[in-house]
């Protein structure tokens, strides 16, 4: 789907801006918003560039930098911290060879921190794109990563 086709699914009103940015980002192979996408959105909604840019830069789910195919968002809420999210972080960093905010060189994973994901009944938690993984231990994390890598090969 082209940027134009994605945008045109929405009515050209400013209050659709966040929904449009989500749609554009979700359909981008690198999970990000390109300058072209922002530019076309601004023109479609009759907004200035900065009105769109400022919104894209405000909300943490949006990224203007290219990211991995899978975005891992590890919850760092007080609950997850209490239940050793830091250990999960160590496992992720070691396995992926990157720090939070970075993308693996194969372009597969981006590791991010998230505020409370609202999964506190089974902390610690993380999301990989739109899927939630709860009650994480080292093994679970390794399993998820293996599964994601395998998906890529398919």
């Amino acid at each position: 789907m082209s940027i134009e086709e994605i945008i045109k699914q929405f009515e050209p009103v400013q209050h659709n801006l966040l929904n449009i940015l989500h749609a554009l980002q979700d359909r981008h192979p690198q999970n990000c918003l390109t300058e072209q996408a922002l530019d076309e959105t601004a023109r479609y909604l009759k907004l200035t560039k900065s009105s769109v840019y400022g919104v894209a830069k405000y909300y943490t789910m949006f990224s203007l930098e290219p990211r991995g195919r899978y975005i891992i968002r590890l919850c760092v809420s007080p609950v997850c911290e209490l239940l050793k999210a830091n250990q999960i972080m160590a496992v992720l960093e070691k396995n992926l060879g990157i720090r939070a905010g970075e993308t693996t060189s194969d372009g597969l994973f981006t590791l991010e921190l998230s505020e409370c994901l609202g999964q506190c009944q089974e902390a610690p938690s993380m999301m990989v794109n739109n899927e939630v993984y709860n009650g994480l231990g080292e093994e679970e994390v390794q399993r998820v990563l293996v599964r994601m890598r395998r998906r890529k090969k398919k």
Partner: peptide, 21 residues
């Protein structure tokens, strides 16, 4: 009536931008 400016980022690292910064 031009609305050319906005902020980028948020919190203490926010600052004013025109266009795409």
């Amino acid at each position: 009536g031009k609305n050319v400016l906005s902020f980028t980022n948020r919190g203490i690292i926010s600052y004013i931008v025109g266009g795409f910064d």
